[in-house]
């Protein structure tokens, strides 16, 4: 949290553009959200209430899915038993539903089956019945895997189902991506792919995609802030500073070792299962590593001084 806030301050002071380190999945979800909305729930609520779980693709094998499937749902509607269906994947304890046509087309076929349209396939009748009959069903999916059109299909399925029953969805998005989207929303009024070059934030997911900006030569410097993920190969074409918790030292032109929040120091992080922020004390406190925010704020101070106007 503090590193993010400091990164936004530095971007403001220097007129930089911002992006998350891995927002492709998050943006598949965000773009559908901004086009047609969503129906969503938390993994904790799904774990407690869902009588039907539909796991799509990679969601069959994911830590949040393990959490969601664990134990007996204490608040599941009376007289129901949880059914777990793995679409296009395999998972112990789940019924496998093959998706030879591909994940997204198969989701489409399920929607056609629910609406009794002619393209519905007989082999989907049982699952379609189960979806319709669920008291509170939840679909878990990875938007990075399904892409924008896949997310659109999942959320369309939610709208279809909720005409008569209750159903919701959980997108499995990287916790760090969730955190940066939240902080960006309240700091800029917009999602993170924003530029401050003209002083006020401009949100443009295409223009401010960092990889695109670097590869097209539009960017001339890069600051990489992520405790646990080293900068990817495409960052090597321009002068870069990387703030990393456990650096090798050759990840960028300048590498600074910083404290890992939740390990070296206390910090606010995203809890994927609870789908919100949580404060984590240091598990192995050490004081020889500066917080990323301290480095970033020092840069902000210097940039502000040299640019000669307050921020």
């Amino acid at each position: 949290m503090e590193a993010l806030r400091a990164a936004f301050r530095l971007a403001q002071a220097s007129g930089a553009a911002l992006d998350g380190s891995d927002l492709d999945g998050a943006y598949s979800e965000l773009s559908v959200l901004a086009a047609s909305g969503a129906m969503a729930t938390t993994p904790a609520e799904a774990r407690a209430r869902a009588d039907l779980l539909l796991l799509v693709g990679r969601a069959t094998d994911h830590a949040v899915t393990d959490f969601t499937c664990a134990g007996t749902p204490p608040r599941q509607a009376a007289g129901t038993e949880r059914r777990v269906i793995a679409l296009g994947g395999i998972r112990a304890g789940a019924e496998a539903m093959p998706a030879p046509a591909g994940l997204v087309p198969t989701l489409g076929l399920l929607r056609a089956a629910l609406a009794s349209r002619p393209s519905a396939r007989p082999e989907h009748a049982d699952v379609a019945r189960a979806l319709k009959g669920a008291r509170f069903g939840v679909v878990l999916y990875d938007p990075a895997e399904l892409g924008e059109m896949g997310v659109d299909m999942v959320l369309g399925l939610m709208r279809d189902l909720n005409a008569t029953t209750r159903f919701s969805s959980c997108a499995l998005v990287e916790p760090a991506a969730r955190l940066v989207v939240a902080v960006s929303a309240w700091t800029l009024g917009q999602a993170p792919r924003s530029g401050l070059g003209r002083g006020v934030p401009e949100h443009d997911p295409w223009r401010f995609n960092a990889e695109r900006q670097v590869c097209s030569g539009e960017a001339d410097t890069l600051v990489w802030v992520h405790p646990s993920v080293p900068p990817p190969a495409w960052t090597r074409s321009l002068p870069a500073l990387a703030l990393l918790a456990d650096p090798r030292g050759d990840e960028a032109d300048i590498v600074v070792a910083v404290a890992a929040p939740g390990r070296d120091s206390a910090g606010t992080l995203w809890d994927a299962e609870r789908a919100t922020m949580t404060f984590r004390p240091a598990t192995a406190p050490r004081t020889d590593r500066p917080a990323a925010a301290v480095i970033l704020d020092a840069l902000t101070e210097r940039v502000t001084m040299e640019r000669g106007h307050p921020c």
Binding site: G189, R198, V200, P201
Partner: peptide, 22 residues
């Protein structure tokens, strides 16, 4: 904010306090 990004588009012209005018 994420549902309606088009409602929060900034008019350019007040660059002094970007977050305050965001």
């Amino acid at each position: 904010r994420l549902l309606l990004p088009e409602l929060h588009v900034n008019e350019l012209g007040d660059p002094n306090r970007p977050f305050g005018s965001a």
